[in-house]
C-alpha cells in the first residue's frame, strides 16, 4: 500500500468535532471537503473504518450528493446557474461556449491542465440577476456571452 496523501490526524480531528457520530456523516464530509477541496479516497475509507460504518455506505453518500466531489477540482471554479430563470435567459449557451473553450465534455468538468472547473449548478437563488455565474465565489449577474468571455480572457491573462 502506497503512502497516503491524506493526513489522518486532520480527519480524526474533524471526526472528533462531530463526536464520531455516524449520523453526522454529511457534515463530516463537508468539513473534509473544505479541508482538501475534494474527498480523497483514503479519507472516506478512514472515516468509514473509524466510525464503524461500511465503506460502501460512505461511498454511497459521497456519490449521492452533487456537492461532493471525489476528483480534485481546478484552480479556478466557475459555476453557471442553470436554474429555470437563468435557463430561459440562455444560460445554456454560456455553458456550451465555456465547455468548447476549455475542451470539456459531459462529465469531464475540469480542464486537463487543472486551470478551471466548469460546473453547472441548479439554481443559486439569484434569479433576479439571471443569467448568473459564480466565478471563484464571486457572483456575476446579468451575464451575456460577451461578458463571460471577457471574464475568461481576464482570468487567463
Amino acid at each position: 500500500m502506497s503512502e497516503s496523501v491524506v493526513d489522518f490526524d486532520v480527519i480524526a480531528k474533524i471526526l472528533q468535532k462531530h463526536k464520531n457520530d455516524p449520523s453526522k456523516i454529511i457534515p463530516i464530509l463537508q468539513d473534509v471537503q473544505k479541508e482538501f477541496r475534494y474527498l480523497p479516497k483514503d479519507a472516506l475509507l478512514y472515516i468509514a473504518t473509524t466510525l464503524n460504518i461500511p465503506p460502501s455506505k460512505v461511498y454511497g453518500v459521497a456519490t449521492f450528493f452533487s456537492h461532493f466531489t471525489l476528483e480534485p477540482k481546478g484552480k479556478n471554479i466557475i459555476k453557471i446557474c442553470d436554474g429555470t430563470a437563468c435557463h430561459v435567459k440562455k444560460s445554456g449557451d454560456i455553458i456550451k461556449a465555456l465547455k468548447k473553450r476549455f475542451l470539456l465534455k459531459d462529465k469531464k468538468v475540469t480542464s486537463d491542465d487543472g486551470f478551471i472547473t466548469v460546473e453547472t449548478v441548479s439554481c443559486l437563488g439569484a434569479c433576479g440577476l439571471a443569467p448568473v455565474i459564480v466565478l471563484n465565489d464571486e457572483v456575476h449577474g446579468d451575464m451575456t456571452l460577451d461578458k463571460v468571455m471577457k471574464l475568461m480572457d481576464d482570468l487567463e491573462a
Binding site: I53, P55, S56, Y59, G60
Partner: peptide
C-alpha cells in the same frame, strides 16, 4: 447489511446513474 451486517455493497450515485456497487 440487514441479515448479514456486512454491508460491502450499497447504492452509489443517483438518478439513472445509480448503481449497486462496492466502495469505489
Amino acid at each position: 447489511s440487514e441479515i448479514q451486517s456486512v454491508g460491502c455493497i450499497g447504492f452509489g450515485f443517483r438518478s439513472s446513474d445509480a448503481e449497486v456497487l462496492t466502495a469505489f
